[in-house]
Write a protein that binds this DNA or RNA. Structure first.
Lengths: 297, 297
DNA sequence: ACTTAATCATGAGATATATTCATATATGAT
DNA sequence: ATCATATATGAATATATCTCATGATTAAGT
């Protein structure tokens, strides 16, 4: 009766608003979708969409079906991907979600070694989430989440992957450049360049500046790390990076790293996974390899 | 590519061992199934079954698909049932799992009032579980579990429905009949009639006899509550029942209830549900009505 | 009010997919 | 070797699904 095709249609219709657009996305004719939803409504004996002018709006029953679709389709998709990976002689497919910019940089450093050591596992990296990374994990959109946020929730398993210091990067000519350690006060008149994430997720604020009740003059959000470094170099601001990442830029650009506070500002990266996946061979190996490879000073 | 039909086939095949029998269950010809699994294997480019003589055995890939089927099909089935209920003008369908004999008796007492007060909700009662009731809940085989076991797990919500004393029932002529309170020692030479559940789930043992390091002479498992009462009456043993249930039998049979221990032996019944279902109107009403109706002394 | 562009709906015919029937092939037990 | 019981397969049939062409409805612009 209800088939996966119907679930896909209801989902596509929800995401694309109109039958016509949904049909395009699904590579079908508008007519086909129209027939299908009519068939489904007829079979179920219930209206799933209210016709509102030239729009369709889901009824309560339709919402239920949509919810089911959103629950089932990602699971099936993962299974299909894994089977496809099997078919190619691989062990499976590992979808890694990254939830922060350093995570992404870190992953690019690890991934080479990883792919080499595990040629039998296909890897997919996902950094856009419909909701949160944690939701994505539980809804089977990803299998592993790399994040600095240690979420203690049920049915998930947490592994610590790395711990390192965050450092301040400034241009060599910058007035702070002679310092070896900065205090919160030093940043009062600085423009802080950050990645575009909510402020409460910036450790430099929550762990360092906020406790001292100090705000930087400006906080400027920048998408790309290269651009951020350019602006730092040109003294348009200062930025905070993991030390291992900072070390690379110091080599090739006129910038200097400075320790943050007397104790340093440390950050951890965690790998979060579904508890039931702990036993999966390639997931265990991913965690193991990750810990070994990332030997960040 | 993979369709629900395939998932149903793989599941039926697993449950019925042979293609032929699975085909019967699905009301299809053996040929149809054979074609379908061939098609699926061809499309996926991977063997799902090993042909072992005249049996089929799932490969690792097949196991994965089976697992997916077992995860998805119950969810879809529940959605279909709910939609069907909607179609009949009902609010939904509520599948109640009962995990103990008193639970079942209790439910039969409540269900009348419940159906009357909620004519718009269809009810289904399930007392056989593939695994545990808790699993059944998380796998969408049931929506509410009635149980005396308070399981504190993630993503489930617990409501206390009732609290009452367990009492000992003996024949009027029984040597213990004159007592108002029994001690563990009193049961040393008795045959204890119980429902067929694992011993560790019997409160009379775990809460009363075990702590005193006393065992009854025999423990005899009996399926039906009527038979249990018959045997009690004929002095073939004694049994433990909820007081509210015992009260009914006392009225019509020559049996007597006796308090267990100085403090009495109390038991609670809980309703367990998935957290995300808490808001559903008819589930809230079920819990509310249950608490009101069951006014067990 | 008329026009236009965009939407969904529908019927008929074409295509694709699934099922059955009849039969072949393979296996294990006796 | 024979028989009972499996699965596999090819061809014919039945069913389901899609597209095409077109109609009907609606919202917005003139």
């Amino acid at each position: 009766m209800i088939s996966l095709k119907h679930l896909k249609i209801i989902q596509a219709l929800h995401e694309n608003s109109t039958l016509t657009r949904a049909a395009n996305v699904l590579h079908l004719s508008q007519s086909a979708l129209s027939h299908q939803i009519r068939y489904l409504e007829e079979k179920l004996g219930i209206t799933l969409w209210e016709r509102e002018g030239r729009n369709l709006r889901l009824t309560k029953a339709g919402e239920l079906l949509l919810q089911t679709a959103q629950q089932l389709l990602p699971i099936l998709e993962q299974t299909e991907k894994t089977l496809k990976a099997y078919a190619q002689g691989r062990q499976g497919i590992l979808r890694i979600g990254v939830e922060c910019y350093p995570c992404y940089e870190w992953l690019t450093k690890v991934i080479g070694v990883f792919l080499q050591k595990m040629p039998n596992v296909e890897v997919e990296i996902i950094n856009k989430f419909q909701f949160s990374g944690h939701e994505g994990l539980l809804n089977y959109h990803i299998d592993i989440l790399i994040t600095p946020d240690r979420e203690r929730k049920a049915d998930i398993h947490i592994e610590t992957l790395a711990q390192y210091n965050l450092v301040l990067l400034v241009a060599n000519e910058h007035s702070l450049a002679h310092k070896t350690i900065i205090t919160p006060k030093d940043l009062t008149n600085e423009t802080l360049l950050t990645f575009p994430v909510p402020l409460e997720r910036l450790d430099i604020l929550t762990q360092f500046l906020n406790p001292a009740h100090i705000k930087p003059k400006h906080i400027k959000k920048i998408e790309s790390i290269e651009l951020m470094l350019q602006m730092t170099m040109l003294e348009r601001g200062v930025c905070i990076l993991p030390e291992w990442l900072a070390n690379e830029f110091i080599k090739k650009m006129p910038v200097k790293k400075i320790q943050i506070g007397v104790e340093g500002l440390s950050q951890k990266l965690f790998a979060i996974l579904r508890k039931q996946d702990r036993e999966i061979n390639y997931i265990q190996r991913f965690v193991k390899i990750s810990k070994e490879v990332v030997n960040v000073p």
